[in-house]
């Protein structure tokens, strides 16, 4: 540790300097920069760590063929359930169905309770990972219900 007039106590030195050499406005500006910086950092890291691609099945197929690292990456796929493909095993709580955007079709497996609005012809947002077996293993299924779903006028 380098020698200082305060016997190595940097904090005392810093406090001394802070009290004598800085105007309140400057100090406040420092605090403000600290807050704004933290907000920026938290947001940037939050997006980096939790952001998920939102793709259509065609886009997903394209991405996967271009870059295999898209397998096993957490993402969301928005598509329509293919009518007649839904099979529910209530005993094991497993839901299987296919989704499509008209060109590309992916099978989906979901363990858990589907939302009330889930039927075999709704638009869904599937959250999960595309595994190498070509099946999307969903952790969450959200159903949109087209024009029939005019809900709470909150705003």
């Amino acid at each position: 540790m380098p020698r200082t007039p305060y016997g190595g106590r940097w904090s005392v030195l810093a406090t001394e300097w802070y009290n004598t050499n800085m105007k309140a406005g400057t100090k406040f500006a420092l605090g403000a920069v600290l807050i704004v910086g933290s907000v920026g950092y938290l947001m940037a890291s939050g997006i980096k760590q939790t952001g998920q691609y939102f793709l259509t099945p065609s886009e997903l197929a394209q991405r996967v063929s271009a870059d295999p690292s898209f397998y096993d990456l957490g993402l969301k796929v928005g598509a329509r359930v293919v009518p007649g493909t839904v099979s529910k095993e209530i005993a094991t709580q497993t839901l299987r169905f296919h989704i499509t955007d008209g060109t590309v079709n992916y099978p989906v497996v979901f363990k858990g309770l589907p939302p009330d609005t889930f039927t075999d012809s709704v638009e869904v947002v599937v959250e999960g990972r595309l595994q190498r077996d070509g099946v999307i293993h969903a952790t969450n299924v959200l159903a949109k219900c087209g024009s029939r779903y005019e809900a709470v006028p909150k705003a």
């Binding site: 807050i35 938290l42 760590q49 952001g51 691609y53 939102f54 793709l55 969301k76």
Partner: peptide, 21 residues
């Protein structure tokens, strides 16, 4: 050109520290 969504994890990760401050 690609849609990226953020959900509750993002809002919690950012707002819990700010809320505590």
């Amino acid at each position: 050109g690609t849609k990226v969504t953020v959900g509750p994890p993002f809002f919690n990760q950012v707002n819990i520290p700010l809320g505590l401050a």
